[in-house]
Design a binder for these strands. Structure first.
Lengths: 222, 222, 222, 222
DNA sequence: CATGAATGAGTATTCATTCAT
DNA sequence: TATGAATGAATACTCATTCAT
């Protein structure tokens, strides 16, 4: 009837070991899910790759579905950490924008398997109200709107609805991430970011055309 | 003395009937695949919906996989027809750009199930060299590059690598299409197109900031 | 679009074929369930024994559970048919009682696997409100109470609560059926029925003891 | 100079502790097996209920199977103790019969879970040569045959093969126990015993019918 | 041609049992 | 001695595909 010795330090070790193992499983799971797709990945395969018994996986995740979802969440967690890390210590707003864009594209360029996971999530779990990515996006977008707002207030970007900027940029980055993955081209992140910034900041019109457009606008309004 | 039952005219009728039936199957298949996902859709379900036997479907498509792929191709075919149709008779390049953007966004806004199909295709058939969408994109992008080239030549848009424009715009539209579908918001296509054009044409910088940037650029170059 | 020829005669053939197949499956299932127990019987085994694919079984029965329950119901159906058949044309009440007892014991002596099925049903499906057997018993017992009532009314059996007779006899037969099966002795049904009837009709007391008991009873009552 | 930790007295304490623990496990096991059935009970559940580790259970019983069988044996042991206890000090044979019947029915009425265990044993371990119950029954029946023999010898019960009496009574009690459990009716044990004794002692025939039967018998024999 | 009954490969999940700590 | 994490054999059920009618 003697209960096992489970003092605090022991428990802490257990908890940490568990967390490590969980992370280990997730990491391998992400790779496999990305490589073979959700339904193409079977638990047997995962267990073998992990060198553990199938049952062990089920000690950490209730079901294949939960495992997958946890893997998807992990991707978003890592993305966030990565971007936030790169933004640290950078104060200039324009610079922050550039760094964030490069960080975003760079993150998925380095981990194409993460892109695949986001697709799989959408394809297999249509029921989940919002995909992981968009849950993250919403919270994040607020922060950027504040940045653009302040730039607009001090006259560095022109007046327009803030959402216009964040929506267009979000969609552009999202589309770029997918396209890069699908077409399997990895153009230098640096150059791609430069292209994006150039167009989003300056537009494509020539100065002459801008003036013409402004006049046309003025006429219409008058 | 019996005449052959399958003379030429008869054969033509048969061929047409076959094509119609094929189209019919594809249409229903698209809806089902979009609604339940690829693996969530079973042939039984499809046969019932079509009021035909399971075997009949297999007379038109070798396998579930081929059926799905044909359905995805159909989506791209329809998209192309739709956009080309709307562009017909429009000559002004800027106008053509605007119409194409509105047509693209409008098409997928009216047929969200088509977006789902593109996702399913990617998720389930990772092996297919390039997703349908990107096969189409490549051929299409050439045509647009000519348009931008001519605009640049006559000084209406500023000098820059043509690909920069087409890549950014493609990615932006692609990302917008997905985001619209995923977040299930259908903001007016009209407004969304306006936002895109505004930023892509004029950029977000204020005039003051543009000048400052230009000066900075000049200094660096000098 | 021509629908298949499904006239009435065709449909009748289909229905009959289906019923035959169902009966065939049930028969084999009973044997297997009896031989290996419910959980010891797997669908693969059943399919092999039937020389059909696993899927076919599932076309007839939604699940292993339903198959088993249908098999148990079949046993009771057969038992009833068998006993009723033997009772046909027999009018004398005492004779009917004897025939029913012999029919009951004989039925299960010939089909020990049916006894096993009743046990399996109880063991595996404790949730089912009442075991098949007892559902049948209840409806049946009413009919016998009428028989005993009439015998009592014409003074051929002594006054006592009717339920006392039917309960004791039912329990005795039930217990005998199980014991025969469990101990795997198959004493002649004929002799066993004779033993039961002898004791239930005449009791075990000697005439002397009966008188003594009657006197004792009389004294107590006076 | 340290004395051996495991001297005789220590060992005795250990043995007793072990026996107690074993009993404890069995008691809980009986309840669980009865509640959820054999396959529905898992060792994890049992360990939790006992507040011990799964491994501990395996230190006392080689396997789930052995544990179950020991639990079934325990039931029979308890039954025997209970009945024997109630018979103690009672000498009159008729009274002993009555007490034994009441004790038997009472025991299982108070412990319906024990009935369930007997069923589970039969259902899951068909291979075991004889169910626990029947092993017990055989040894026990001998003792009762002696009782009936002596009653017959002194003319208190009429001449007939001794087995007829013990078989019928055993089967009747066995059937009554199951029926009580299955139909979940708990009629007073007292009344049920009275019903059984009335019929088994006196039979159901009226005096008139008995005489008629006796005459018929006489005629046939002459 | 059209049908749908038949097939059986394929897979997530459970749980008795072991054994390192 | 006691524990419970780890194991992997075992199994019901689905569904794409075939083919006799």
């Amino acid at each position: 009837m003697t209960r096992p010795v489970h003092d605090d330090s022991q428990r802490a070790v257990d908890t940490e070991r568990r967390a490590q193992r969980e992370e280990q499983i997730l990491e391998t799971a992400v790779r496999l899910f990305a490589e073979h797709g959700y339904s193409g990945t079977d638990t047997q395969m995962l267990a073998e790759r992990l060198q553990v018994g199938k049952g062990t996986i089920y000690r950490y995740f209730r079901s294949k579905r939960e495992l997958f979802l946890a893997a998807a969440d992990r991707v978003m967690r890592l993305m966030r950490q990565n971007i936030d890390g790169q933004l640290e210590g950078i104060d200039d707003p324009f610079e922050r924008i550039g760094v964030a864009i490069r960080a975003f594209l760079g993150f998925f360029a380095e981990h194409p398997e993460f892109v695949e996971l986001l697709i799989q999530e959408r394809a297999q779990f249509k029921d989940r109200k919002k995909p992981t990515y968009f849950i993250h996006r919403e919270t994040n977008i607020k922060r950027w709107q504040a940045v653009y707002r302040s730039l607009m207030d001090c006259g560095r970007i022109r007046e327009m609805p803030i959402e216009r900027i964040t929506d267009v940029l979000s969609n552009l980055l999202y589309g770029t991430m997918f396209t890069n993955y699908f077409t399997d081209q990895s153009p230098s992140v640096e150059m791609q970011a430069r292209d994006i910034l150039d167009i989003v900041f300056h537009g494509i019109l020539s100065d002459a055309e801008r003036r013409r457009a402004a006049e046309g606008e003025a006429k219409r309004t008058s």
